[in-house]
Write a protein that binds this DNA or RNA. Structure first.
Lengths: 226, 226
DNA sequence: AGGTTTTCTCAGCTATTTCTCAACAATCGT
DNA sequence: ACGATTGTTGAGAAATAGCTGAGAAAACCT
């Protein structure tokens, strides 16, 4: 899957590129509207991520021109927050979906998956490892039939871990996926949150198998053997 | 089900179209009265949503002409607010129901469902959670056999919550469904209205189970356990 | 036109969450 | 065994989410 990112802020463009590449998308980047338009019309992308405010040509303008040219590549438009009424205009211009900055990287991924009509990543909304269940539609977490109350960040972290069971996830990787792209999060913060999760899902279940493992020097992993 | 939307404001027409398509209706749009009239008389629609103020031919006029031509497709007429005395005229002209702009999308859907259901059973739905009942045809709410008086916004919010019992609904989600498209509603407004509802349906029933739950960081939920 | 109700925002308050820091513990290489 | 590196944890500061009373503005009703 090839994705074109049109975004003038290099920092943001780069984080998106790196993040998407880790998810095995092929990514090209354009830093202004006209470049974006040229690339979108000459190459064959599966998806275009288009910032609304761009030098040389506005995002809305780019979208309109592409549609006029009968290029129907799905477009996901980005705007700064507080421009809520742009939504209608954005969708009118031909965009297929719409996301306000700043956003969590996971949300961007979810929208991309939706637009690419990919079968949602085990989209039973219910993730399960051993006797631990996480339901993404009711936002509930259970272990051994006991409900566990998590804060939203704890939930996001656990969801991310559970979507990649038995895989080692580095702290940098976790930061990129669970926090916003521009969040300046120390690796220690991840350590602290892993600690919180352990207090809630492992420590009270001493009888059961411990689920969150530390792989010193590499990262964390949920599930699998010691 | 095929629906014809006759509305000259492209922005509104488009939002309605997108929204209805998401509900699996097939939607055609006409942007003025004569086009609307032509399409309505040549195609076979299940419902026509007709704006009152239209270029080339007034909504009322379109409705009258259709009825003269023995086309009895249900018509839902839209007017700008503050034109309340138009109601009689609108209904006289042959419209079956009547909605003032701006409206919440959920309300439009409810009316559409009502109109499309009319031939079969004209029974309004009754939603129930524990000892709380909400009747959408009489617009009445009861708890423990006591009638509770709600404003229309409160009613709309409660109806939305009760149509999704045991589900967590985020403030953004609630705004999108209970308020109208271009309403610029702060999340705090939802908090306030949830407060109003609590004052009326939970606080006076301290003995009973409390029904409206806050899930910090996620949203609100009606029904279900603490 | 005047009073009432409803809708919505604001500002202050509280509780919770988020995140960092720094001290401590565990592990690793030599 | 030793310092160096990496991970854990308690304490607390800062940020954020949610609740509520007050009130402005609009809509509604005679």
């Amino acid at each position: 899957m090839r994705i074109l990112v049109v975004e003038d802020e290099h920092k943001i463009a780069n984080s998106i590129r790196v993040g998407l590449e880790q998810e095995n998308y092929a990514v090209d980047v354009a830093y202004d509207g006209t470049d974006g338009y040229d690339m979108a019309s000459s190459e064959d992308y599966d998806l275009i991520i288009l910032d609304r405010m761009l030098p040389r040509m506005e995002g809305v303008e780019v979208a309109k021109k592409l549609r006029e040219k009968k290029i129907h590549t799905p477009i996901l438009m980005l705007t700064a927050k507080g421009q809520i009424q742009d939504r209608v205009e954005g969708l009118d211009s031909g965009a297929d979906d719409y996301l306000t900055k700043p956003f969590a990287f996971e949300e961007l991924l979810a929208r991309i998956r939706a637009l690419l009509r990919r079968p949602q990543n085990s989209m039973g909304t219910s993730l399960m490892i051993e006797d631990l269940t996480l339901n993404t539609s009711t936002f509930s977490v259970k272990r051994n039939d006991k409900y566990i109350k998590l804060s939203s960040k704890e939930f996001a972290l656990l969801e991310y871990l559970m979507r990649h069971p038995n895989q080692i996830l580095s702290k940098e990787h976790i930061i990129a996926h669970v926090w916003n792209y521009d969040a300046d999060i120390l690796p220690n913060t991840v350590e602290v949150y892993v600690g919180y999760l352990r207090n809630k899902i492992d420590k009270p279940f001493k009888e059961e198998k411990q689920l969150i493992h530390t792989l010193r020097g590499f990262g964390y992993r949920i599930g699998g053997e010691k």
